[in-house]
């Protein structure tokens, strides 16, 4: 069963930035894109389990703070070594000024 989970207020994330969101023993990264959309991925880099929320968002790319590997956070696609494995992504929606994510 999957439910929408309240994650944060829309104004808690600057445009072209990311925050960490922990829920039910898992960690996620929630992104605010330069064009105002919100996205959600797993929170840890698939290379060495580093929190992506400490990394740098450039356009639609998140760069890992440890080894500079890059993902497209809209699709989870690994874009630059040393990351090779794609990130899991999750649906998001905005309801009443709150960002919600749908995780299984």
């Amino acid at each position: 069963m999957t439910d929408w989970i309240d994650a944060c207020a829309t104004d808690e994330i600057d445009e072209e930035d990311v925050i960490r969101f922990d829920h039910a023993g898992r960690t996620y990264a929630i992104y605010h894109s330069p064009d105002g959309e919100f996205f959600c991925t797993d929170g840890l880099c698939t290379h060495e389990q580093v929190h992506l929320a400490e990394g740098l968002v450039m356009d639609h790319v998140i760069e890992c703070p440890k080894h500079n590997g890059q993902f497209d956070y809209r699709t989870g696609e690994a874009k630059r070594a040393p990351v090779c494995v794609n990130l899991a992504t999750y649906p998001t929606r905005v309801e009443g000024g709150r960002v919600q994510i749908k995780v299984s």
Partner: peptide, 10 residues
């Protein structure tokens, strides 16, 4: 060396 240097940072 891209991989080698990643290990150096880890």
């Amino acid at each position: 060396w891209r991989w080698s240097h990643a290990r150096h940072h880890t």
